[in-house]
């Protein structure tokens, strides 16, 4: 019985060690550098949100609008996630 618990403890230790190693050795600098270089090309910092054509694709720069019914405010699903 005790052996079973020891095996379980070893499994947890191994899993936590792997996660810690992944977190520590993740190439953050290269990831950040690639993003900054892409930003320096386009000069427009924006998240690539998968929104509908009528929603605000570039948050802060464009407002949601419906070309067929300009007075009607379309539902912008991303406003449930990001503040205004």
């Amino acid at each position: 019985m005790i052996k079973g618990f020891l095996v379980l403890a070893l499994l947890y230790t191994a899993a936590l060690t792997s996660i810690t190693a992944h977190m520590l050795f993740f190439k953050r600098d290269s990831h950040r550098e690639k993003i900054m270089q892409t930003l320096s090309i386009v000069n427009l910092p924006t998240l690539s949100l998968s929104t509908s054509y009528m929603a605000a694709g570039i948050r802060g720069y464009t407002k949601p609008s419906n070309p067929s019914y300009p007075d009607m405010m379309p539902i912008d699903t991303m406003s449930f996630v990001y503040g205004e």
Binding site: S30, H31, K34, I35, T38, L39, V42, P45, T46, L47, S48, S50
Partner: peptide, 9 residues
């Protein structure tokens, strides 16, 4: 790796 900003670009 840059998908978060370049996916639809």
């Amino acid at each position: 790796e840059t998908n978060i900003i370049s996916n639809d670009m």
